[in-house]
Write a protein that binds this DNA or RNA. Structure first.
Lengths: 401, 401
DNA sequence: CAGTGGTGCGCAAACGTTTGCAGTGGAAAG
DNA sequence: CTTTCCACTGCAAACGTTTGCGCACCACTG
């Protein structure tokens, strides 16, 4: 269907642009069109003669080669090619330089440039687990904003291993990232310390540190939980359980706080037995916690799970014990992962604009790079309840209707 | 809960290791323990005096500073710190250098190193859409293998835009990636041309180019489709439709081929009207194609979708038209995305080890980096059928039981 | 016609490494 | 005691850019 053109691409129109260059036959130019006489720049697409004509060899063209071809100094080429300094050089020369650069297929070497300018144009992004469904949309949001700002994203997947996280953070520091965005796994995370100490701007996304010393973009976790509780209270539930997230994470901690506050707000009795924290955000843990709730003997008609993963774990435990959802027990998740609308039953959950979370974090980082002295700041994105099929009025209250 | 230690970390044990360094009071050392007299290296954790003692300032320590402190030449430091050249230098000196490096918190500058060695230690990964559920596991597989090999991953999300893809590919080339792994969106993809032309090793993952000129790791698409067909035939279906993928993608094209071959193999009549290709791998397209099939009037009892996304689109169209799945029409997907087991009904699909796909692609790239002259090679991973609730014997055949 | 100002460009240093080469010293060999 | 060799380390160049500085030239102005 198509063939890769390894040689010179005829459709680039660069050769024509070079036509009006007056090439002085500089001796050590590796490239000699008419043996130093004219400017006869036939593309010469013959593959056979590999050592003559046809400029773009494997070796990348350097600034010096462009300079030689355009008959100027490298500094002039540099200035002509950079849009900020272009005004310093004669438009005529600019044109000549650009033509030569195009002809040679010149690409700046970001490594060399970075060494001189001490900028790497790259941002490290450290995620605990790429397979967690909330991660990709956040990364997407990040990446879009960062690319827009001229950065490239160095992605590291820590895979829940502190050692790997540390190694990645170190490697990124060595790679001279200009900033780092981390979904730090745990609260007491050594990995970021050395970066922060070294003055690398760091922001967190989706989670924070307790002392708020690092800028972060987070969902309004408090509200996530209270939205769920208010929804259930509105349906008539009066005994609501909470499968909480790991209390060492800011999401788990704050959503539990939000849950308790909303319960109190609704005038419902506070019963600590109905709150059971998971050790991790997994289905298994969700199921375990739900089983614990069921076997506690304390009656309840609804569960607020700190997370969709935990919520589907609840689905499993409920099915095991013969309880129907939502007929016997309602379940609310949090995150609105993809395809939760296709679950059986479709999961009522709290949507978080993860993409916005990502771009907000990127924005914070860009600010911080611009002015490293900026005090830490939090961006809080407000969630929204999504009512689907996993919640219904409790039996008792329905019977009254 | 915890406090960030911005100053010197007392628990690093580096200061102690430095105890036996004999520091000659070199004049321009920014750091002077006892004003040139002794080696009295008290950590001196007083935050108040910010301008004295306490080595690790904001500025990253450089090789020269380590050399000065250890009283050797930079070249010796370089050799002592690199594990390959360490044998060249006196063990005593090595120890002294390492202590000095640790004391100053020295980190090599990968940019400077890269300029010298013309290695960037980074690999570009170009994805069409991070939100596509098959992408994260592939990236995870890639990343794990590449990090293991000492590389960092530069992730670019093209977001289905050829322009963006081109821009990202260019930026990565400028960043001097040592190789590129692409989930190329379309067959005639200009974006990779310039990289390949420049001699950057490139491999594809999940998709290929028709002429096989680029190494790739792909699923056995042919088998994906035939597994689905064989399963349905085994259930007794004799009239099977195919919602094909975009025919410009190798997955779409090959799965259709596999479908047709399997139909023929089973001795079923070939009817082109029962094959309708989608324009994109989306739910909407799946629904559209399914509607087209339903309105064609040609009877069928099962659908093989080229993709789970298309399959859930079929769910929608079937529900619209009042057809039950699997009672009226069975549906088989492909990819075994996460949570397909929780769909209603749980989706019978073909599992592809996407993680392995990723690590295989990484392996191919590493080979190619090692020996750029290697001929292109394909790694094909075999899929496996996962039977769930969306397939059942056709009514006709069930009635016979 | 001297003075002034501005434009355009070259020169060279610098960024932080790595590495071929050469030099030093000491030990082993003659 | 001289020679040879080896182990160790310093010297300096190079990687490809960017950028402050200064020079040359030209066009004004007075």
């Amino acid at each position: 269907m198509r063939t890769w053109t390894y040689g010179h691409r005829a459709d680039e129109g660069e050769v024509a642009a070079l036509a009006d260059i007056q090439v002085v036959p500089a001796p050590p130019v590796p490239w000699r069109p008419g043996a130093g006489t004219g400017v006869h720049l036939e593309p010469s697409l013959t593959m056979s003669e590999q050592t003559t004509a046809r400029p773009p060899r494997k070796q990348r063209a350097t600034l010096r080669e462009v300079a030689q071809l355009a008959n100027v100094h490298t500094s002039t080429v540099s200035r002509a090619l950079s849009v900020k300094t272009r005004s310093m050089v004669n438009p005529n020369t600019v044109e000549r330089v650009m033509a030569a650069a195009a002809y040679l297929g010149y690409r700046p070497n970001a490594i060399a440039r970075g060494l001189r300018t001490s900028r790497s144009h790259s941002i490290g992004v450290l995620v605990p687990d790429l397979l967690n469904p909330v991660v990709p949309p956040i990364v997407q949001g990040l990446e879009a904003r960062l690319v827009e700002a001229g950065y490239l994203v160095l992605l590291g997947n820590a895979d829940h291993s502190p050692a790997r996280e540390q190694a990645l953070a170190d490697a990124m520091q060595i790679q001279q990232v200009e900033g780092l965005i981390a979904f730090t796994a745990t609260e007491d995370d050594q990995a970021l310390d050395s970066l922060i100490e070294a003055g690398v701007p760091v922001v967190l996304v989706n989670r924070t540190v307790p002392d708020g010393s690092i800028s972060a973009a987070v969902p309004d976790d408090h509200m996530c939980a209270s939205l769920a509780v208010e929804h259930l209270v509105g349906l008539g539930h009066t005994s609501i359980a909470h499968v909480a997230g790991p209390q060492a994470t800011s999401t788990g901690f704050r959503r539990r706080e939000g849950f308790e506050a909303a319960i109190q707000e609704a005038g419902l009795p506070r019963s600590l037995e109905l709150i059971v924290p998971a050790d991790r955000y997994t289905e298994e843990e969700g199921a375990r916690c739900c089983r614990e709730l069921l076997s506690s003997g304390i009656p309840f008609t609804a569960i607020v799970a700190a997370n969709d993963m935990l919520a589907v774990g609840c689905y499993d435990a409920l099915a095991e014990s013969g309880q129907a959802c939502p007929d016997d027990i309602s379940v609310v998740g949090c995150n609105d992962m993809p395809f939760t609308d296709r679950f059986d039953p479709p999961l009522t959950t709290v949507n978080i604009a993860h993409r916005d979370l990502g771009s907000a974090a990127a924005e914070l980082l860009l600010e911080l790079i611009h002015d490293p002295e900026l005090p830490p700041r939090q961006i809080i994105v407000t969630p929204a309840l999504v009512v689907r099929g996993s919640t219904a009025p409790p039996r008792r209250s329905r019977r009254r209707w």
